[in-house]
């Protein structure tokens, strides 16, 4: 089966920034992404868990976008505008998709 090259961008960011990030991505034409809850993890501030969080202040989310390679720069610029001073990780990996017209 034929596959097409694409970029998979994964952004782990504070939950309070979810809407701002989503709107920022939509502004640059990235309308396809998936937002996943994050159960917990470990980072520069030590271990944390979603368990027992009464506020969205310390929760994290994971945003996954798969896009055509030529759209990567505008997506990263938009993401950086939101991430800026906030806790978060952005990673980009090469991937292949089956239906190129969808990305």
């Amino acid at each position: 089966m034929q596959t097409h090259k694409a970029k998979r961008v994964e952004i782990t960011i504070e939950a309070v920034m979810e809407r701002r990030l989503a709107e920022s991505l939509e502004k640059v034409g990235v309308t396809g992404f998936t937002i996943l809850p994050v159960l917990g993890g470990s980072g520069r501030s030590g271990r944390w868990s979603r368990e027992g969080q009464v506020s969205r202040a310390s929760g994290m989310i994971n945003v996954v976008c798969i896009i055509r390679p030529e759209r990567l720069d505008s997506l990263l610029d938009a993401a950086f505008g939101v991430l800026d001073r906030h806790i978060g990780v952005v990673s980009v990996t090469d991937c292949e998709v089956l239906r190129a017209e969808r990305f």
Partner: peptide, 17 residues
Amino acid sequence: YIAVPAAMRVALPEANP
């Protein structure tokens, strides 16, 4: 410990939550 922490994460992200 609900409304203000979320606001502080947006407005003053440098503060240690």
